[in-house]
């Protein structure tokens, strides 16, 4: 489904150039659940950002469903809009908006009845229906992450990207969130999770270890 070919991301720093991702090639199958693991600074998040189109690779190409993606800002943002749902460690919710408005953020017409119904359905599925009128600062970490996942799902993306989704949560809540991802995956959604937690990674069908920007190990 998604193929990365010889992806490299190089940053220029005061002390010279630095390769955060170095010639990485990998294939993500449709409906798979993949964990990208590695130490802090290993390049796993950069790789995830490249997949999401937030970061432009220095070289290499991305093929999605057999089609090579353009690397322009426009092509990447179109790809992200149509196919990607993104969840991050600190939830990236807008504090001044209610849970409802946060979930509605990706929608083009958030005030329509259809949108409201969609938000209700997802929030019920994720167990946050009664929190829709609340602001993120009044919610727990687990609730915030559920809102973030609901937001990532609202446009029904093909791929869910999660960057350390349990990093800010206690173990009980982490387990609940992972159950959510597994449930999504069991319904055919492709999930890619970046984590440094081996327990979290072990719950995924496939583990790819990143070290110094390169793939250092794969586990099926």
């Amino acid at each position: 489904m998604l193929e990365l070919k010889n992806i490299t991301k190089e940053y220029n720093t005061d002390s010279g150039s630095f390769k955060a991702v170095d010639n990485v090639s990998l294939t993500i199958e449709k409906g798979s659940m993949t964990a990208l693991i590695g130490k802090s600074g290993s390049g796993k998040s950069t790789l995830l950002n490249i997949i999401s189109g937030l970061t432009k690779p220095t070289s290499g190409e991305i093929v999605f469903c057999g089609k090579k993606l353009g690397l322009s800002q426009r092509a990447m943002s179109d790809f992200r809009y149509e196919h990607i749902g993104f969840v991050v460690q600190n939830f990236a919710l807008v504090n001044q908006k209610t849970a409802f408005d946060n979930i509605a953020l990706p929608l083009k017409n958030s005030r329509s009845k259809k949108s409201a119904k969609k938000i209700e359905e997802i929030s019920k599925r994720l167990g946050i229906y009664d929190k829709l009128s609340q602001y993120p600062y009044n919610m727990s970490g687990g609730e915030c992450q559920r809102v973030a996942i609901a937001r990532a799902l609202i446009n029904e993306p093909d791929i869910i990207l999660a960057d350390e989704p349990t990093g800010a949560l206690d173990s009980k809540t982490s387990a609940e969130i992972m159950d959510l991802f597994k449930a999504l995956n069991s319904h055919g959604r492709t999930v890619i999770i970046v984590t440094h937690d081996k327990d979290i990674a072990s719950q995924c069908g496939r583990i790819i270890e990143i070290s110094d920007g390169r793939i250092s190990g794969r586990e099926q």
């Binding site: 800002q73 943002s77 179109d78 809009y81 993104f86 991050v88 953020l105 990706p106």
Partner: peptide
Amino acid sequence: TKYFATLSICGFRRS
């Protein structure tokens, strides 16, 4: 900036 980054991951185009 973080708000715009959030919008980016919510599928907002750069334009």
